[in-house]
Every structure is written in C-alpha cells, then in structure tokens.
Design a protein around this nucleic acid. Structure first.
Lengths: 213, 213, 213, 213
DNA sequence: AATGAATGAGGATTCATTCAT
DNA sequence: GATGAATGAATCCTCATTCAT
C-alpha cells in the first residue's frame, strides 16, 4: 500500500519532467534560451510551479537539457564506433548525425548565458570529455586508415562539428536540411586524405577546446 | 547652412554616434543582442539618453549595427573582386576575411529577435542582395576558371560563409582565430574542383537563402 | 470546473481586482490619469506585478475604470426612470446624482490621453450610447410633461451633465459638495419650462456629442 | 552705440518670450500641462535652451501663462464694468466672454500639478482676488438692480464661471462653441431673479473659493 | 503535489534640465 | 544670446521566483 502510491507518483513526476524537458528543448532550439519560463511551462502543459518544482531555476533547466543532449550525441558516437567498419566511416556518420542534433547542442552557441552555465557544470564537462575521447579515437583511427588528412587533430574536427550544430538560416526546413547535408559533404571532402593545401597554424587538440582559458 | 544630414554640430555628435555603434558592435558580438542598453551606453562612454537620441530604440540600434557591417562585407567583397587576379582567389580572400567580420554578421544568427528585425529592414535586405550578387559572380567565375567544383552554387557558398560568421567557442582569441582559419582551409579544400564525392540534393542558389518561406 | 470567467481562485484575485479598480478610480479622480502605476498599486495594497497581471497596461486600467463608472451612471439613470413619478423628476435626480459620480466620468475630461483611450473603446461607446438613450427619454418625457423648456434637446442636457462631472476647486469637500448642489439647482432653474430667454443656435442632439468629427 | 544694441536685444527677447507664451497657452489648452518642453519650444520656433533662458522651469512657464490669462480676464471684466449700462449686463457679458477664455484658465482645472503651482503664486493670487472683487461688485450690483436672484453670492457665480472654463467635449469647434453659449444661456436663465426654487445650503462667498482649506 | 496569483527587482524608455558650441 | 546635444532620474513594464490555495 505504501510502495504503490510512491511508484505512481514517480510515474507522474517523470512524465512531467520529460514533458518539460521536451518542451524546453524545442523552445530553446527555436527561440534561444531567454524565453519566459511561463512559456515553457505552458508548452509542457504544466503550471510554472511544477516546472520550478522539477528544476529549481532556469539554469538548472538549461543544464538538464544540455545533459540530455550531450548524452544522445555520446550514445550516437558510441553506436557509430560499434557499427561502422572503419573509423573514417564512423566519423562521417557522426558528422551526418550532427544534423539531427542541431536542435540540442546549438544551445550552447545561441546564448552567451547558456554557454556560461554549461561551462561550469561538471556533469556536462564529463560528457563532453567522453565525447572528445571517442572523437579522438575516430580521428586517429581514420588517419591510421589513410582516409583522414594527417594535418588535422581532434580539435579541428570538433570545431567543424560544432560549426554544424547550428540552425541554418534559410527558406525552410527542407532547404535547411539539405544545406546542412551539403556543407557536411564539402567538409568531408576537405578532410579527406590526399590532395590538399597545407593548413595554417598547428593541429588543434582537445585541449584547445577548453574554454577555461 | 548644413549641407547634408551628416555635417554641422557633428563634431561631437558624429563622434558619439560612431562610438556607440562601435561599442554596440563589440558588445553584441560578445554577448548577444540582449545586453542592457545602459551597458552599451557605458561602453560607448555616453549616457543612455544620448544613445536613445541617436537610436530611438534597441531595434534601431541593431539595424544600424547590421547595416554598418553588411556594408563592410560588401566593400570587402568588391575590393576582392578588383584586386584579385582570379575569381577563385577573390572567393578565397572573401572567405578568409569573413573571419574579421565575425563580430558583425553573426548578430543575425545569435538572436532570434535580431534575426526578425533584420529580415524586415529594406536597407539590410538590399545590402544582402548586393552581396549575393557579388558572391554569385565569384562562384560562376571560379567555376569557369576550373577552380571551383561545379556541383555547388551561390547558396552553398553563402551557407559556408554564414557558418563561419560565428564566434568559435574555444580557449582564447588566439586559438579561436587559428581554428577559424583552419576550418576555412578545410572548406576550401572541400570546394576545390577535381576529386570529390557527389554532394546530396541539388545546388543551392541565392533564392534558397531567402528566409521568407 | 470554473463556471464562468469570474469564478475560481477568485477569492483573492477578485478582491485584488476590485481593490485596484477602487484605488485607481480614487487616484485618477484626485490626481489625473498620469499617476505612476506604482502609486496606484500601493494604494490598492498590491505589488505592481499584480496590477499588471490584471490590467496589461495603463490604458487597460483607464478603460476598466471608465467602464465601471459609466456602468454606475447608467444603473442610476435606469433606477431614476423606474422610481421617479415623472420624467422631470427623474432628470433632476440624475443631475443630482451626477455629483456622486464626479470621481468617475471626469476622467475623460481631465486627461487628453484618457479621452483618446475612451473614444476608441467599443464597450465604453456602447455604455455611453445607452446612457444617451435614457437621457433622451427623460428629456422628451419632461418636455411632454411641460416641465422642461422645449428649446433644448438631449445634447444640451448631456452637456450640462458633463460639465458637472468635474471636481469643483474649492476650500474643502463640504464646500465643493454644496457648490455642486447649488450649481445644479441653478441649472435646473435655467432648464425649467416657462419664462426664459431664447437660447442661441439650435438644440443639440445626441449626435452632436459624437467626438468623431 | 551702447543703447541701441541693448534695445535691439530687448525687442528680440520680448518677441521670443511672447512667442513662447503664445505657443504654451495653445498647447496647454489643447493637450494639458504635461507636454514635453521640447514640443513647446518647437511650436514657439525656438530651441529648448531659449525657452529655459526665459522661464527657468516648467512651473515658471505655467505661472507665466496663468498670469497672462488672468490678466486678460481681469481686463475684460473691467471693460465690461465700464461699458455696460447695468451690472447684470456686465455679468452676462463676462459669462459670455468666459467662452473666449476657456483656452487659458482651464489650465488650472486640467492639471492637478498646474493647480498646485497656481495656488502658490502670489501674483496669480492677487489677480484672482482682484477678479473676485470685480465679480462681487457685479453680483451685488445686479441684485440691487433686481435682475439677479438674491440667494446667490459671488462664490456661486464664480463657480458657474469656473465650470464654463473648460473645453466642451464634442463633435467639433462649431458645436463646442454653440454648446458653451447655450449652457451659458441656461445658467443665466437660472440666475435670473424671480421664479426660482430655493437653492440648497448657503450662498457661497469669495472666501469659499480659497483652496487653502 | 499541482496550480497559478503575487511580488519586486531589473531593464527599457522618456523627458526635464544643464552645458558646450 | 541661441541652439540643440548630453545627462540621468523617474516611470513603465516584464518576468524569474515564491507562496497560498
């Protein structure tokens, strides 16, 4: 008798949490991270009070959305590693999937505030570090395979990756989608080993991405 | 006695206007378009009242910054056309210069609000259209020269261009600068005529960029 | 479960709304329609936020006060019609009651801004039209009774009425009250059928009051 | 050589002062006393700086407009006294002229702020006192002549007078003008000696008008 | 636990007044 | 003296967060 109601509540609570997270992701992606909390609550079909019960303040919500999404990227990356036959293919697959992830990670880019929040969250940092490790494996592996140009490093690829994680400004969803795909294609061709101009500077490593400097 | 609307008592007034515009550009670029007006005024070394005398509201300021910057990009593009020996070189130069312009055009991408404002300003629209024409010339010219892959069109290049017009999130200015340069290099290699994979979809034209759809 | 838009959680909400309206009426009457919103909120014993939750902006508040008051005048007029034995008596009663209503309708006269707002509100227009109809009945009835001079029409009486709906500037409430009563008495004597000088111009109708010309 | 430039300047200065005063009167009458100083300056065809040189602040300007106008009313009253054959006629003439003065004295009524300012100005107080003396003479004289009802006193008439000094809200200038004239006519009929109902309270004297209580 | 009303601090904007030209 | 640019205090309004129901 005591266990059930609790389980029951948990189910409700989780549903609420998920709805809020989903609504927040969508709205953040569409309008940036500065939307009124009330609007997010409305989109999630709950009252503001409920939203605040789950996420003590806006920062917590932003963090939660970000964790949720980094998590997805990481899962995708790992899946790519497992399922693709070469590192180069895994890398290409990941770049292509980035398109699907636009709605999420772009958060960090769209809002200075969000960026500041994310930088300081250990959970997010951990996920990000994990992701960079996986990406680093891809890069080294693909270079070993002779597919990826050798004058780039993990940081370079991450940068390209980050660049893609934005919404393309264009006529409509269709075009935006195609545009992203084509940009990815061009980038991949630019990354391919073989006939390339020398790049300026030095290869960028994961360490270069740390925004704490 | 004042010859044009840009003379007279403008010793200080013009100076103030320029300072405000410069401060706004920098701050918008660094922190997005939602910074307190007072902060911009402070950065410009004037009182809020002065800021509002020059620009009736935030929208007007955003517009002015955008016009100012599109104007610079366009001037750069024309200079590239005049001074470079081939269209391919002009295109490369323009892509590289885009780095310098990050602080400006990114405005439109960083803030939904800014984007909405810019879309509706005829002056900005005109500048943008001009820019697309110049870019279109480069693209066709460079393809005629055999330097640019022929399965891309103006819209593709504009998209890459737009993608670059953001601030790279990274350790410091130095790294960010290098990162951008390297991304540009990779993109250029991806654009080079010759040995490339087929791109998905169809070549994007200027028309595909029109956000009115 | 909420039956109409005026029930539910309105124990406090409705109380607040009423307090705000009452405070606004009093303050508008005393100091004009330009008082800081904060002062109104304070007088109503609520925070500004609450005021703004109920009335999206100052205009809405002015409108609400005006509607509230026109409503009262109209109710009074209808009561006079029902309870007085003659139209002349009803008219006199209404003129006298106007004194009680000073605090309200004068709004429209005291502030250009308020006037502009009221002119454009359909709800207020409707109430005003209703009031003019009732007044018109009084006028015609009283003339038929031989009590009201026949060279006046509804518009004339409405004008006198409007003139009374102001605060008399004078030593104190007592005197102001008496002054109004005496002015009404003088006007009534001036309106009485019988021994009068001819009035200039033509009788003013309801149509002459329409400020849309 | 020394005298002339000074006289010359005086002429200019006076012209400016008069233009400002005229503009202020018109604008105050039309829009109330809260219009931006800049608007008044513009209407007067001078810069704000000049306005402020003549009138140290808004209050001073309001005071000056009021003095100017009370002065006119007083002159009119004295002229009426001299030129009309009876006190009753002089009183009637004054009431009628009140229409012409609407644009001015209404100042005091339209704005609480203006009222407060006027109350505290000795020059205005003196003019007002003078006016009340003249009006008192009219009243007593007309009662002696058997034309004015004897249950009214100066204060009553001043109240009626004050009531008229507002802009009538109506279709247009024509109608407003006629409405005022007709209201005056009705009031005069109400004031006429003879066949009247008893008024409530007691006759109001000049002392009752003193707003300092 | 869910809801939405209340609060008030924060940021936008206006305008009286001052001051350099 | 005249002008209009600059200043900043005052007021409007929004929205994050808290709390009574």
């Amino acid at each position: 008798m005591a266990a059930d109601p609790e389980t029951r509540l948990r189910a409700d609570a989780r549903r609420n949490r998920d709805q809020i997270l989903a609504a927040a992701r969508e709205i953040f992606a569409a309008q940036g991270a500065e939307v009124p909390m009330e609007e997010i609550a409305r989109a999630a079909g709950v009252g503001v009070g409920t939203l605040y019960r789950r996420f003590p303040d806006r920062d917590a919500l932003i963090r939660a959305v970000a964790v949720d999404n980094f998590d997805k990227v990481l899962k995708d990356a790992k899946a790519a590693k497992d399922q693709e036959s070469s590192n180069w293919d895994a890398l290409i697959r990941l770049l292509h999937q980035s398109m699907e992830l636009q709605l999420s990670v772009q958060l960090a880019m769209v809002s200075q505030r969000a960026l500041a929040i994310l930088k300081s969250d250990p959970a997010i940092k951990a996920l990000r570090d994990d992701l960079l490790v996986v990406l680093g494996d891809f890069v080294q592996g693909a270079q070993a395979e002779g597919k990826l140009r050798t004058d780039v490093a993990t940081g370079d690829v991450a940068m390209l990756f980050a660049m893609l994680l934005r919404q393309m400004p264009s006529k409509g969803k269709e075009v935006a989608r195609m545009a992203t795909r084509r940009c990815i294609g061009i980038m991949i061709d630019g990354l391919r080993a073989g006939r390339n101009e020398a790049l300026p500077g030095r290869a960028l490593t994961s360490a270069d991405l740390d925004p704490s400097g």
